[in-house]
Nucleic acid binder design. Sequence first.
DNA 1: CATTTCTTGTATCATACGTTACAAGATGGT
DNA 2: ACCATCTTGTAACGTATGATACAAGAAATG
Lengths: 217, 217
Amino acid sequence: MPLLDSNARIFYRSLQFQNEIISMSGKKQFDYDHAIDAATRLFWAKGYSSTSVRDLLKVMKIGEGSFYNSVKSKQHLYLLCLKYYQDTVTAKRWKALLSESSVKKAVRRFIEIVLEDLDNPKVPNVCLMAASLSNDVLSSHDLKKYVLAEMQGLQKALTLRLEAAKSAGELSSQFQTEPVARVIVTYMQGFFRVVRVLHDRRQMEQQTEVLLSGLGL
Amino acid sequence: MPLLDSNARIFYRSLQFQNEIISMSGKKQFDYDHAIDAATRLFWAKGYSSTSVRDLLKVMKIGEGSFYNSVKSKQHLYLLCLKYYQDTVTAKRWKALLSESSVKKAVRRFIEIVLEDLDNPKVPNVCLMAASLSNDVLSSHDLKKYVLAEMQGLQKALTLRLEAAKSAGELSSQFQTEPVARVIVTYMQGFFRVVRVLHDRRQMEQQTEVLLSGLGL
DNA sequence: CATTTCTTGTATCATACGTTACAAGATGGT
DNA sequence: ACCATCTTGTAACGTATGATACAAGAAATG
């Protein structure tokens, strides 16, 4: 069974290629792009189980008819939102992590971007992905599978980035790339949780610096 | 407003002094100790919002009458359970952290105890407190206040322990006790999340060792 | 313009939730 | 033995949830 069925695939494709409007046989379509964006923001702000379908419909500006015709279920919508979130928010973070010249700078830039969202009033919560590591989301097999895959994807990408830096001589030859990558990913998960109750950017920056320099970064 | 009202205080007191049975005017009482213990386990296994009052009543072996007479609400019960959890499960971890002769050993013993619960089939989830850093719990002001206080309590205790070790010469004079304590607490939050989806004790041990030695512990 | 095909809003479903009302019963004081 | 007091189980409440049924209607095709 594919992650997205054909209807939802079309639904999501319209997000990726905003100008390519797919007009099926003979009907009108609501504003997909706006709908998914609004849904993502709401999930992001309130969490999965605390967000009701009716609230979602309101911000998406569609009725249950359209919703259950295209998206099929709340769970499915969440999957689409996670993917959308990955393509917009997370992508920026990854880019910073992978493209800078120095790993040390890259990792710090990564953290910086995350912390910038902390001050941004437009961003309701720190990380949708991190919030997905909860009972309500993980109890769905499909969602758990996706979340786990994405987390491991980040860990692997980070490992490769560290490996490259090690080969380039930027890091010592004893540097343990994979465990360090795992530590950072795990730490980030805690980071997103703690920052929600602490709300102190300076303190988070300081402790993160202690962690990174301790790890040899 | 106190954290526990008089009725609930009596309720909880019976947990602490199991032999002191408080007989009010003229009535029977259900098995408080068993009730709270069972409720804690259920919350622990399923999370706050995913656990219904009816499920709780079933394992507590009481009816809604008794429940709303003594505990008042689901939220209140959760508070009692967090406290019970603190006095039983978390207390053991703290003890290991604070009582050992060497800090380095103490911290490792702390992690070890957490990981032992990972293999224990009787323990349903890794940490009730960590699971409480979620939208559903934090959206209640009272619960958030309690959870935050407990987290900061651990952080402070750990800082003091590190400070003592520093004074004793076990740690270098440049050792940054407070940031390191914060890093560990934050990391542990991520730890409890990640371990739930990874289920790999060896890997968690390895990456934790990398973190601790990196921090100079 | 008729027909087909798909969308969309309304109304509704069945269920689950946290909580309350209350009568029946148990208990100790007097 | 009686009364006052508190407990306990049953039944129900009101609301919210995710999902569905279906008629009315829009769009393209022939």
